[in-house]
Design a protein around this nucleic acid. Structure first.
Lengths: 134, 134
DNA sequence: CTCTTGCTGAGACTGGTTCCCACCATAACG
DNA sequence: CGTTATGGTGGGAACCAGTCTCAGCAAGAG
């Protein structure tokens, strides 16, 4: 009795859109883009879709500095982290084995169990750096 | 012409309160606590104060999962990270030299400069673990 | 085909945060 | 020490992301 989300036009359109994008987008941006494409999808539906997708590990979620949640379809389905360009939004997926080992070790040193971690890296990518110094 | 915040009763009271606490608190919680103490400080003022304090590095800010900002007066004024107990909120400050070195190295490997990082650890502390298994 | 059940969407609602603006206290200046 | 400009204060309105409501609809089971 596993709960599998029903396959609907709206969900398909949202996934399609996410496939086309390679940067993190907010639910509101996705909604706008869908409307621009001419499909009539409700904002609430977009929220529900990205939420269920993220629960199933099909998309990754990040929180921006101003508290907005942004979503991205990721190549790696396993746990990983992101290195995001602060200027153009280009995102690189990182396997963070080393950082995870560090986290577990630090937790143990302070008597903490089940240590989860939030690790995100923000930098300036090579091409933006070049553009800035030009 | 450096902008130094004016010293007022309200700001002093907020800092005092933060000194007494050793867990992260939201602006709203701080506001409530101040009112409970009998001091009439506006909510807007609390927001302004914690904001300016965090900009000056006098308090640390974290975002909870539901998008609330929480604040804490930290012992270390230099850059550091936190290991928070998910059950009791107990917080340990971590010097994360190793993680930072890793972040810089990963950034460089992908051609990224000025790599900032967000690293937070959440776990279950020894005493909460004991209480849970009791 | 029919029925059940989950999905949809418009708009109302919530809760955290910021803005507005008249009033007030601080600090600088004479 | 009084005056003044400047920035802080506070209450409420405004804002915005996100959630809830509920009637209508459509996917999938039987």
């Amino acid at each position: 009795m596993v709960v599998v989300p029903r396959q609907t036009r709206q969900r398909a359109e949202i996934l399609d859109l996410l496939e086309d994008l390679d940067e993190f987008r907010s639910a509101q941006q996705l909604h706008e883009m869908l409307r621009a494409r001419g499909s009539s999808v409700g904002l609430a539906t977009v929220y529900r879709a990205v939420q269920s997708l993220s629960e199933h590990g099909d998309v990754d979620v990040l929180r921006t500095e101003d508290g907005e949640s942004v979503y991205r379809r990721c190549a790696q389905r396993s746990h990983h982290h992101h290195l995001v360009c602060r200027s153009c939004g280009r995102t690189v997926e990182i396997d963070a084995g080393q950082a995870e080992a560090w986290a577990a070790q630090v937790g143990a040193a302070h008597g903490f169990d089940d240590v989860d971690h939030i690790i995100e890296l923000v930098g300036t990518c090579a091409s933006c750096r070049a553009a800035a110094t030009a």
